[in-house]
Design a protein around this nucleic acid. Structure first.
Lengths: 221, 221
DNA sequence: CAGAATCCGAACCGATACTG
DNA sequence: CAGTATCGGTTCGGATTCTG
């Protein structure tokens, strides 16, 4: 029946901006959908691939709810069989500040302050089916914290310390990396300004950001 | 069998600042706890009252997890029977930008763009046990959208239109209200600058913000 | 085949009862 | 007061099925 009108029973129901915001975008995967749509409209199947790990019912539910809140819109071409795409409305695009704040806060966690143990991340969501299997390692240094990132099959493993034979070495500060992620500055510009140092081919650099899930990073070469 | 029988706490497990941030503060109630602690350390029971609607096990779990992430700290006085309090660490205080972004985005939702129907909010979390029952209405106007807020028992009802006999009339713009909520400006200063208009006693104004769940608002009189 | 609904086992949430 | 234990209901995640 009319499911679009039903609100999650698990709403906060408070007269409070934080609560009302979280009632709309606080559920699991919702902000990930928004972030995926920040780089332009996407089809259902593209979103599904990008949200690897979430069930198709979740994606369907979130999109319905977001459409009901006028956060995303659904565009269907008029040609029969033409694709349907989802895009952010103005209200949805305004969530950039929220995602920006969360991502900025989360940058510290990329380095893994907890010492020692290697950590395995899911990487299926960054896999571009048009490219072949990637199997390489990168050397990172952020604010002096060094670690190796090893892309292997559908996993990405982060290990503290130096990498054996990295394809790319990448060194910068947390603040600079943040402004690279937000698109404020390109990697090339940051290198120019002496705020990023990297070794490796430009092609590998570009591929690295794709593999890591930052395809939107402006490499700038 | 073929899939790893991991402890599978529902984490995103992505090498992505947004995902890692949400792994730490994306669960239900977590950001509400952070916001509650923004106004200073609190005891377990205070938090429990402020989080009316969440089970005590949830609060316990969230605090444990937040402590593990060095986002909140636990302080126990050395005197026997002294209270234990929870407070934000520096890392936790850095979440102010996240909460600020969400709250700013959520301000639009306070007015209730969805037409017509009155909406009922839970108000138990704003009830100060030391004060007696409150039963009064306020007239709000934000960016020209008028609505009545009626505090009744443990509910708060928002109704579009004008209130019958409000104790307080409050009129401002969304932007100004945002800066009042963030503490950037006091109500008195905004009135001074002609950006807020209100009618009613200053005492009632102060009480209104408490009843609505904004006890931290600097009235400034 | 893309888009979406349905079903089901498992994890999670919320409320109450209970313990030190 | 500060939690822990437990239980029923809800939500999630994955596979499958349906529909044009």
């Amino acid at each position: 029946m009319d499911k679009s009108a039903t609100v999650s029973k698990r709403a906060y129901d408070r007269f409070c901006p934080l609560s009302l915001a979280l009632d709309q975008v606080g559920e699991r995967w919702t902000l990930h959908i928004i972030m995926a749509l920040m780089n332009g409209p996407k089809r259902y199947s593209e979103l599904k691939r990008h949200l690897a790990g979430a069930g198709t019912n979740i994606l369907s539910d979130r999109l319905r709810r977001l459409a009901g809140g006028h956060i995303v819109g659904r565009s269907t071409g008029q040609a029969p069989g033409s694709e349907t795409t989802y895009h952010l409305t103005e209200r949805g695009a305004a969530l950039a500040s929220v995602i920006g704040a969360l991502a900025t806060w989360g940058i510290d966690l990329l380095s893994g302050t907890e010492t020692g143990e290697p950590q395995v991340f899911d990487r299926t969501w960054t896999i571009d089916p048009s490219t072949e299997t990637i199997n390489e390692t990168y050397q990172w240094s952020i604010d002096g914290i060094e670690f190796e990132l090893a892309a292997h099959d559908r996993q990405l493993t982060r290990t503290p310390g130096r990498a054996a034979r990295p394809v790319v070495k990448f060194k910068t500060s947390k603040a600079i990396f943040a402004s690279i992620l937000t698109g404020e500055v390109s990697v090339a510009e940051a290198v120019e300004a002496g705020e990023v140092r990297f070794k490796g081919s430009r092609q590998a650099l570009r591929r690295m950001f794709s593999v890591l899930g930052f395809p939107f990073v402006r490499v700038g070469y």
